[in-house]
């Protein structure tokens, strides 16, 4: 008969709604993220909409370094999202602080405040790389839901 759980899981993978938070970024990554929505790259094909509201979103795209002021906002936004959710850290700044890792106001990469599922390196990463990052995040959601096995070989662990 109708397997609602299966259909819901299909819906989750085909309709990841994104909220973008610029967390101390120089704007390079942000404009590449916005470029994903526009004609040449067009992520709406995959069902991705940029909803501005964390309460409606499944995937949080964070760009930029975390500093002492915006870490509170970042945690707030992460907490407002409903499960299942994924976090993608975009750009070298989001991974580890990038060029600014030893500035006095910088705490570090996004994973110092919230758990990150996917890291997209680049300064800034191309829109294609960001789209790839979202696709990998969907794979991570699949693993979290128990629909797929975690890969045997882990990606490079960044300290």
């Amino acid at each position: 008969m109708i397997n609602l759980k299966e259909w819901i899981n299909k819906g989750r993978l085909k309709s990841p709604w994104v909220v973008h938070f610029d967390c101390g970024s120089c704007n390079g990554c942000d404009i590449e993220i916005l470029a994903c929505l526009t004609p040449v790259h067009d992520v709406e094909r995959f069902g991705i909409i940029n909803v501005g509201n964390p309460k409606h979103a499944d995937v949080l795209l964070v760009s930029g370094t975390v500093n002492h002021r915006n870490k509170i906002a970042l945690k707030n936004i992460y907490d407002q999202m409903a499960e299942p959710k994924a976090v993608i850290a975009i750009g070298a700044c989001g991974l580890s602080g990038g060029v600014f890792h030893d500035c006095y106001n910088v705490v570090g990469g996004v994973n110092k405040v919230i758990p990150v599922d996917v890291y997209v390196p680049g300064c800034p990463p191309r829109p294609e790389a960001i789209i790839d990052g979202v696709v990998v995040a969907l794979e991570q959601i699949k693993i979290k839901l128990g629909l797929a096995e975690a890969p045997a070989v882990h990606a490079v662990h960044m300290e």
Binding site: R12, D58, A82
Partner: peptide, 14 residues
Amino acid sequence: QPFYDVLKLWGKAP
């Protein structure tokens, strides 16, 4: 797509 959206929203944690 709207059906996928509604299904996904139905499965979100309250």
